[in-house]
């Protein structure tokens, strides 16, 4: 049972401003169905005064995700864009009388949507899809970047991987990124980060060596993870830097397969074989 405050319950049971503004002046979507929560925020902004006149949301997620979105829209109405940019996840959680620690990521999702919507309004470059914001993806399971992790660590004074997972989900999946998250925590708090060993310059490979190395990397580093999810991967061909693979089992036809290919398979091959590799799926 989650310990929700009366305010959270109220905003979950009676969410304010549900819906979508037609032809909005600002809009943003964060999260996705795979991760278990997603928020679409639309704003009506008076261009002369810069005041947010209306805000609406649609949210897929748990009780506190819906409550956080509802409160966010209430906080936004009547604020100038400039003031709205200052809203933090702490404020969202605070307005709700606090959230359970495990649920703090819901308030972070609200803040992310807001940032993205305002960037959209101000014509700033929108962060790429699947990444919470710009930066290098650290947690591939949930697509969380180093910059987001650093920010939740800084703004909420977090010290453990578990806390980081509570606030932005990073590290909540396979657990492979835990050392990187620990590094970010150390760096953010100004401590001496674990020494990063420069990866050795890779020597030039012959085609046969390269194919063998790709096969080995898939077998050792990639297949076990994919099999753990009930799928499988098969190397079909290597044409220059194009690596053609087939996805089998649960992966075949999975909505997140493309994501897996780019962020798990391609990233691994780039790291261990060649930086210029790109992976393509061959469907049967």
């Amino acid at each position: 049972m989650w310990d929700y405050t009366d305010k959270v319950k109220d905003h979950f049971l009676h969410p304010r401003n549900v819906g979508e503004i037609e032809n909005p002046d600002a809009e943003a979507e964060v999260g996705n169905i795979t991760c278990g929560d997603a928020l679409r925020l639309t704003l009506r902004i008076d261009k002369k005064t810069g005041i947010i006149q209306d805000a609406k949301f649609k949210t897929f997620g748990c009780g506190s995700a819906i409550a956080s979105s509802s409160v966010l829209t209430e906080l936004l109405k009547g604020k100038t864009v400039e003031d709205a940019r200052k809203i933090t996840n702490k404020e969202i959680a605070g307005f709700l009388g606090g959230l359970p620690r495990e649920k703090m990521h819901c308030s972070v999702m609200g803040q992310e949507a807001l940032e993205k919507a305002l960037a959209n309004y101000l014509g700033e470059e929108a962060p790429e899809e699947h990444t919470h914001e710009e930066g290098e993806i650290i947690c591939h399971c949930f697509g969380v970047t180093d910059s987001l992790i650093a920010r939740v660590v800084r703004e909420n004074d977090l010290h453990t991987v578990e806390e980081v997972t509570n606030f932005c989900k990073a590290g909540g999946g396979c657990g492979m990124c835990h050392p990187s998250i620990e590094d970010i925590i150390a760096q953010t708090h100004g401590a001496q980060a674990t020494q990063i060993v420069e990866t050795q310059k890779k020597k030039v490979l012959t085609n046969i060596q390269k194919i063998t190395l790709i096969q080995q990397t898939i077998d050792r580093e990639i297949r076990p993870q994919i099999q753990a999810d009930g799928g499988d991967i098969e190397l079909i061909d290597v044409v220059g830097n194009r690596v053609l693979v087939g996805l089998r089992g649960n992966c075949a036809g999975c909505r997140t397969a493309q994501f897996t290919l780019q962020h798990a398979v391609e990233a691994k091959l780039r790291e261990l074989v060649d930086e210029d590799i790109f992976v393509e799926e061959v469907r049967e």
Binding site: C62, E102, G172
Partner: peptide, 23 residues
């Protein structure tokens, strides 16, 4: 079996093993 009710970040290991889509 949703993630949010189990105290974990990922949904039910049983449904995932069965290949039930995230939707």
């Amino acid at each position: 079996g949703s993630a949010c009710t189990s105290g974990s970040i990922e949904p039910s290991h049983v449904l995932r093993a069965m290949g039930v889509p995230f939707t």
